[in-house]
């Protein structure tokens, strides 16, 4: 009896998970700071409630002018849509091609360190800027129109696909590469016999996803004048043709949905 109580006394009877911040004062102090900062920043935002109020009525006005959507100028609409889809297709295709060498050079387990660093730098730099900013550059250089849009999307696609490809190759089990190297295979043979079969399905999957994303992004870059349906949309807004705007928005939603379904379907079949 006494022995048992002694054992129970020596054994801890309480246990709790390890907290992110062990010290309770620090933990709750930090929490309190976050709350205080939140309310302080709300105060500094200087939200003008009158403007919110008048904005609401304007919004109501705009939405009422939007319905019913006006599909009267459907030729312009279809032309914009086709241009957007073509931009997306072209950009995905060239992006896929550019992404292969870039992705291979960005895989640390394949290439010497300097090559790796250069390739990674290129990828990081092109991912630093949002598509819209890149599009503004290209519009300034090549003028308004789809060329600037396509170039923008190529840059964005190539950096995205190559980053995914590089990460995929880096995640290859090192043993498989080692085994194929050990047979006396050269690097090109390693590429076609080990890396390509292992990485190809995901590369295609990512590319199809990117095609879907490019359809969405092609509508955005159009707004800064880089062609496609986005440019038509921006024009309709600036002319207060809100009913036409709604028609365009509906068309965009439809095309993005179709792209999404297509992309999901294809990727499902690639497993």
């Amino acid at each position: 009896m006494t022995a048992q109580t002694k054992i129970q006394g020596a054994t801890p009877r309480q246990w709790h998970t390890i907290k992110l911040i062990e010290n309770p004062y620090l933990r709750y102090g930090f929490l309190a700071l976050v709350v205080v900062y939140f309310f302080w920043s709300l105060g500094t935002l200087d939200i003008d409630w009158h403007r919110v109020d008048s904005g609401m009525t304007r919004a109501g006005n705009m939405f009422s002018r939007m319905v019913p959507p006006d599909f009267g100028r459907w030729e312009l609409l279809v032309k914009g849509l086709v241009e957007s889809v073509q931009m997306a297709l072209a950009a995905s295709f060239f992006g896929m091609i550019v992404a292969v060498p870039l992705g291979l050079c960005a895989a640390v387990n394949l290439v010497p360190k300097p090559v790796y660093l250069v390739a990674r730098t290129i990828i990081v730099l092109s991912r630093t800027f949002h598509e819209v900013i890149i599009a503004i550059f290209f519009v300034k250089i090549f003028g308004f129109g789809p060329l600037a849009g396509v170039l923008t999307l190529i840059v964005a696609s190539a950096s995205f696909i190559s980053k995914m490809l590089a990460e995929d190759i880096e995640n290859l089990p090192p043993g498989q590469l080692e085994a194929v190297r050990a047979t006396g295979a050269s690097f090109p043979k390693l590429l076609i016999y080990c890396i390509s079969p292992q990485a190809l399905p995901r590369y295609l999957g990512v590319s199809i996803y990117r095609l879907d994303a490019n359809i969405r992004h092609s509508t955005v870059v159009g707004i800064v004048g880089a062609g496609g349906i986005g440019q038509v949309l921006a024009a309709s807004f600036s002319r207060y043709d809100y009913d036409f705007s709604l028609a365009i928005l509906i068309a965009i939603v439809t095309i993005v949905f179709v792209g999404e379904f297509f992309s999901t379907w294809v990727r499902g079949r690639l497993r």
């Binding site: 089990p173 080692e178 085994a179 047979t183 399905p201």
Partner: peptide, 12 residues
């Protein structure tokens, strides 16, 4: 060479 983890190219 023969390996502990076999190291076959799995998708082939």
């Amino acid at each position: 060479m023969i390996f502990q983890e076999y190291n076959l190219v799995e998708r082939l």
